[in-house]
Simulated scan of single mutants.
Amino acid sequence: MAVDGKQQQQHDARLAQDFVAFAIEAGVLRFGEFKTKAGRLSPYFFNAGLFNDGARIARLAEFYAARLIDSGLEFDMIFGPAYKGIPLGATVAAELARRGRNVPFAYNRKEAKDHGEGGSLVGAPLAGRVLIVDDVMSAGTAVRESIATIRAAGATPHAVAIALDRQEQATENGQDVPHSAVQYVRDQLGMAVVAIASLSDLLAYLDERAGEELRAHRASVQAYRERYGA
């Protein structure tokens, strides 16, 4: 049965809020006062490194795979940038295969290996349209490095999949800029970006599904968005 636009939007919103609930339950998404790389004091912190057991990372891969399949994005293989992207790329590839879409994956080393097969790339040869899988995108530095690696191998950097779009201004040379890293990748680099959830979804979750204790953080999250939102 065909799904109309409104039904798809409702489905996407449910998936995003389910992910927010999962991240909070896993202790990956926390509230308080946290200093970001840009020196901002953020009322929330997302640390994907805390998806640190088999059940959590398997569930995380399910969210990535569901969002990718729903998006209709076409790609030929997955690249997971070191370090957090390595387990993400592998588990997302495994979950996609479980769902009937088997694609190769590869990842890089931070330092090139000078023995054995050598080089800085591991896994399938980079070829075709490459999907970069990572956790978040702050300044876009990691994505630019991945793009250079993919192009150097003769493949096409095609899209990026992330867990959370913070929807906030990026910084360049220590200064705030009006666009986010996600907007930069989409608008300036011409690549699609697929996010499981965004700051808008987090605010919606705090509005609609959170208990009283968590809902108390909504005002500070909204204020942060108004100050730094892109």
Rank of each mutant, 00 (worst) to 15 (best):
G100E: 00
K84R: 12
A97K: 12
F105K: 03
A155R: 13
S120Y: 09
I162F: 11
N102V: 13
R166W: 02
A159H: 05
E172P: 00
A82H: 06
I162L: 15
S71M: 06
S198A: 05
E168Y: 00
V143D: 08
A139H: 03
T141M: 01
D114M: 05
V185R: 09
A106I: 03
H179I: 14
T91K: 07
G154W: 06
L202I: 12
R101T: 13
Q175R: 14
G128D: 05
S71F: 04
Y184L: 11
V182C: 02
Q183V: 06
A181Y: 02
A152R: 15
A148V: 03
K110E: 07
R109P: 06
S146A: 15
Q175V: 00
L88R: 08
A163F: 10
Q169T: 03
A159G: 07
R67A: 14
S198F: 01
E168S: 01
V136T: 15
R98K: 14
G72N: 07
S138M: 09
R98H: 10
A82V: 09
M137P: 09
I196S: 08
S180G: 13
N102R: 15
Q188K: 15
V185K: 09
E172M: 05
P87H: 07
V103Y: 00
G85Q: 05
I78L: 10
R166I: 02
V130L: 02
Q188R: 15
E145T: 12
D135R: 01
I162E: 10
V185N: 08
H179F: 14
A65D: 04
G89Q: 11
I86L: 11
G123W: 01
G80D: 12
E74H: 14
S180R: 00
K84Q: 13
A195R: 01
I132W: 09
F79P: 03
V143E: 10
L73H: 07
V177H: 00
T149N: 11
S71V: 04
N108M: 07
S146D: 11
V133R: 02
P125R: 08
A94P: 00
V136I: 15
S180V: 01
L189S: 04
V136S: 12
G118P: 04
A163S: 13
D187R: 14
